[in-house]
């Protein structure tokens, strides 16, 4: 079956800034596709190209088999979009915006609308100007989830949500996936798409640096373990354990980078040295890039940030 989204060699320049530099992206029907990248990587730009809001300077792109620039209006009947920074009309209430967007998209599922409002604890009678960032985000999310469209394009949809609401979001995302709809979900936090995504594409400096299923990308999901031990342990010794990628001593602590599958073993070995304090955390995307791609990328120079 033809992919829902297929971009090949996309380039996009803003003046002298190259936002997209030969980006390839393939999203298949029915999958939740995580679109990962640090700030300024080109996620929002890619999404705007896919929506026909921006023209490309090169490369080809098809959405549901059609050209998003030429057939924008037709294509938009089949998708719902949640922008990264939702701006609402100051004098329209959240409920009005949800209905407006729903009707513009050709109808809204009433039952789902009510359900979503409740789940997200959103007051639909408030005016746009009195919503917090998270609540503006919720308005757009409710409108998108309540529309009966085959494709959802979500640009950092959880950036303003608190952890509780993020959970609600994940539940609804799971439901959308169960219904067989396709989702493009951008984020700059790996763990966020980890739970929901079938496949992930990682973008940096306008180019895809890695793409595949989460299992393919397991090597990316190293956990950082920091422990202070009763009986000292040399970094060089721990570095030789299976599944340990790197180890160093940091004052009275030892800091290890461990493959996720080996975390249990490593904890056991650490236990033998008497654990006094322990923190485990998934690596941030930036850390991943620093460790993983520093050598392979020719042009990793950070570019200037422009609020999108």
């Amino acid at each position: 079956m033809a992919p829902v989204i297929e971009a090949v060699g996309l380039t996009k320049k803003f003046g002298t800034t190259t936002a997209l530099d030969g980006l390839d992206l393939t999203v298949h029907e029915g999958e939740v596709h995580g679109f990962l990248g640090p700030n300024g990587a080109g996620k929002s730009t890619t999404i705007r190209v896919l929506l026909g809001l921006l023209r490309t300077d090169g490369g080809t792109v098809t959405l549901l088999g059609r050209d998003p620039w030429a057939d924008a209006t037709e294509l938009h009947r089949q998708l719902a979009y949640v922008p990264g920074d939702v701006v609402l009309w100051p004098n329209l209430t959240g409920g009005e915006v949800i209905d407006l967007l729903g009707r513009l998209r050709g109808g809204i599922d009433e039952g789902r609308r009510a359900e979503l409002l409740e789940a997200f604890e959103l007051d639909p009678t408030k005016k746009g100007r009195s919503y917090s960032k998270g609540n503006r985000q919720k308005v757009a999310l409710v409108a998108a989830f309540a529309s009966d469209v085959p494709l959802l394009v979500l640009d950092e949809p959880t950036s303003g949500l608190d952890p509780l609401m993020e959970k609600v979001f994940q539940e609804h995302l799971a439901r959308v996936r169960a219904e067989g709809r396709t989702v493009l979900l951008s984020s700059h936090i790996l763990s966020e798409v980890e739970t929901a995504a079938d496949r992930v594409s990682i973008v940096r400096a306008g180019r895809i640096v890695d793409s595949g299923t989460l299992a393919d990308l397991r090597h990316l999901t190293r956990t950082s373990i920091s422990a202070s031990l009763a009986r000292p342990l040399a970094g060089s010794e721990a570095g030789g354990w299976p599944g340990v990628d790197s180890a160093r001593e940091d004052r009275d602590r030892i800091v290890l980078s461990v493959e996720t599958s080996a975390v249990g073993d490593v904890l056991q070995r650490l236990g033998a040295h008497g654990i006094e304090a322990l923190t485990c955390q998934p690596p941030t995307l930036e850390e991943l890039f620093l460790s993983q791609y520093r050598d392979t990328l020719t042009d990793p120079a950070p570019r200037e940030e422009v609020p999108a």
């Binding site: 209430t93 009005e96 915006v97 407006l100 513009l104 639909p124 009195s130």
Partner: peptide
Amino acid sequence: LGSGLWAARPGPARGAARLGTPYGLAWRL
């Protein structure tokens, strides 16, 4: 900060039927 002396009052929870088109939106604005 950010608000006026005249507080923003709550509004309708549902959009009127007229609001469902770009013209309806522009007129409302």
